[in-house]
Amino acid sequence: MKEIEASAITQAIAKLCQEANFTLGEDVLSALKQAHRTEQSPLGRETLNQIIENARIAREERLPLCQDCGTAVVFLEIGQDVHISDGDLYKAVEEGVRRGYHQGYLRKAMVSQPFSDRINTKDNTPAVIHSEIVHGDRLKIMVMPKGGGAENMSRMAMLLPNQGKKGIIDLVLKTVDEAGGNPCPPLIIGLGVGGTGEKAMLMAKKALLRRVGEPNPDPEIAQLEKEVLVRVNALGVGPMGFGGTTTALAVHAEVMPTHITSLPVAVNLQCHSARHKEIIL
């Protein structure tokens, strides 16, 4: 049994919220630089150049990469041999988000009652927390500030089983094409297939945490990712929707078994400001 103090979790989350907003991962940055080399549209290249330069300024000056500092999506992988002492785990997470967004001069974006009052909660809480019990005695915390522009363009569909692979690809293409410049391409596309409706979307979201371009270990799924990426980049949407050959940097798919009657497919779009940071306690 390992003891982890709730206050250590708060501290870790506060730091991760800030680091994620100031520093773009080197995997994302190198994918953007690669895209800059291959993009055929001059305007597309100029746009990628601005995005790369923006990451440098944000890192060096500790300014948020984007004024939309996102919903704080927090993934917790809790070892079954971990005991949280001196406090409530979820409260510790919320307090970490509160402190991180305050200390980092991050924009607070959460509003109360989504279909009526919409009053800003002023501290970016509540966070969206996904927790999972895993083997071992460690606590892994991943913080993903998720911008609204890309999240708003996410889609899901309960396909008929006989729509198969073609149905999956068509849904992604339709989603990305209709979204155009709104979700701030070049995108990372999270694709969740199988399970149930809510599970498919969660898989799609979690797939975004993978290193950019790292294929699914299953060769058939990796092949699907590759095929979808080629087709998406043939749409012509391009960086910021201005036209070009780079609409997505990567497709990350997660797949699980499903019900005999079902083919749930979820597409979670991630903008080029693909922010997430993690720590293991």
Partner: peptide, 13 residues
Amino acid sequence: LATTGGAGALLAK
């Protein structure tokens, strides 16, 4: 006029 989304640090300059 369109400008680059997610380039807020650059545009702030």
